[in-house]
Computed example of a mutant assay.
Amino acid sequence: MSAERVAICPGSFDPITLGHDDIIRRSFRMADRVIVAVAYSATQVKSGMFTVEERVEMIRDTFADEPRVQPMSFQGLLVDFARAQGASLIVRGLRAVSDFEYEFQMALMNRRLWDGMETVFLAPDLEHSYLSSSLVRQIAQLGGDVSPFVPANVLARLRHRFPPAAEAGQSTSTAPQAAGMIKDSILRAYEDRWVGVLLQANARLREHPGVVDAVLSFREDAGGLRPLFLVHARERGPASDADLRDYAGRDLPSEVPPPEIHFVDHLPALHAA
Results as ranks from 00 to 15, higher is better:
123 A>N: 06
123 A>K: 03
125 D>S: 13
125 D>V: 00
130 Y>I: 01
130 Y>K: 06
132 S>I: 02
135 L>Q: 06
136 V>I: 13
136 V>T: 09
138 Q>D: 03
138 Q>Y: 08
142 L>P: 07
142 L>E: 00
143 G>M: 01
145 D>A: 05
145 D>E: 03
148 P>Q: 07
148 P>H: 08
150 V>T: 07
150 V>N: 03
151 P>K: 07
153 N>G: 07
154 V>G: 04
154 V>A: 08
156 A>F: 06
158 L>S: 06
159 R>D: 12
160 H>W: 09
161 R>K: 15
165 A>G: 06
166 A>G: 10
166 A>P: 03
167 E>D: 14
167 E>W: 05
168 A>D: 08
172 T>D: 05
172 T>W: 03
175 A>D: 04
177 Q>F: 08
180 G>Y: 05
181 M>V: 06
183 K>H: 09
186 I>C: 05
187 L>D: 12
187 L>H: 01
187 L>W: 00
188 R>N: 12
188 R>C: 09
188 R>A: 14
190 Y>H: 14
193 R>Q: 06
195 V>T: 11
197 V>R: 11
199 L>N: 13
203 A>D: 11
204 R>N: 09
205 L>R: 04
206 R>I: 04
206 R>F: 05
207 E>Y: 03
207 E>P: 01
208 H>Q: 08
213 D>R: 05
214 A>W: 02
215 V>M: 13
215 V>Y: 06
215 V>Q: 10
218 F>S: 04
221 D>P: 10
221 D>L: 08
223 G>N: 08
223 G>P: 02
